[in-house]
């Protein structure tokens, strides 16, 4: 019994039952398959996060966001005063997170690729693109680059899913995806 010392002093020489050996073998094979799925998806899959990230500061990152907004603003989001920005396909695009908003609203073209830079001005935030359900952690002082190719059109919500204080549940942004003109 497991609550007493093993009855045979030399328990490590006991033979192991066949079905037990068989189970350990198939479990090991399954473990290896799961392990190699990850590098395999890096080679063949379309959904991998880049390892591209840079050190930055809230001031430096904020300046880049403002420069982009000044250059490519097309309208404002309803009566919120938040600019909607339509950057050219293939370009570097910036979105910042701060208590408690995502700034600015972006407009992408379907099928085009964008280098989306994400960073926080204050605490950590969670970039959660809905209903795609793409989730990325946003840190202050880190500029994370995600190369993103929208494959569907419409209005997408950007929910914050890292707790960031008492206004956390009001932090929602938006990304529009439109067909190519």
């Amino acid at each position: 019994m497991a609550i007493f010392p093993p009855p045979q002093r030399v328990w490590w020489n006991e033979p192991v039952e066949k079905s037990e050996v068989f189970w350990v073998s198939i479990a090991l094979i399954w473990a290896l398959i799961m392990f190699f799925m990850m590098p395999y998806w890096h080679l063949t899959g379309e959904q991998n996060l880049s390892n591209e990230a840079y050190r930055t500061t809230p001031d430096a990152f904020g300046a880049k966001v403002e420069a982009m907004v000044d250059q490519y603003k097309v309208r404002e989001e309803g009566d919120t005063g938040v600019p909607v920005v339509r950057p050219p396909a293939g370009s570097d695009v910036y979105m910042l997170a701060r208590l408690w908003e995502w700034y600015p609203v972006l407009e992408f073209e379907k099928g085009e690729t964008y280098r989306l830079h994400l960073s926080s001005m204050d605490w950590q935030h969670g970039f959660s693109l809905q209903p795609e359900n793409i989730n990325i952690q946003i840190h202050p002082n880190y500029d994370m680059v995600v190369t993103m190719t929208p494959t569907s059109t419409g209005e997408f919500g950007v929910v914050c899913n890292e707790f960031c204080g008492v206004g956390h549940h009001t932090m929602v942004g938006k990304i529009y995806v439109v067909d190519k003109k």
Binding site: E77, P131, V159, N161, T170, M171, V172, K174
Partner: peptide
């Protein structure tokens, strides 16, 4: 379906910009 953890209001009643789950 994308519902965030640690979140007081998944219907975003007080938010400037909205999203409907």
């Amino acid at each position: 379906l994308g519902v965030p953890r640690r979140h007081w209001d998944m219907n975003f009643a007080d938010a400037m910009i909205n999203y409907d789950f």
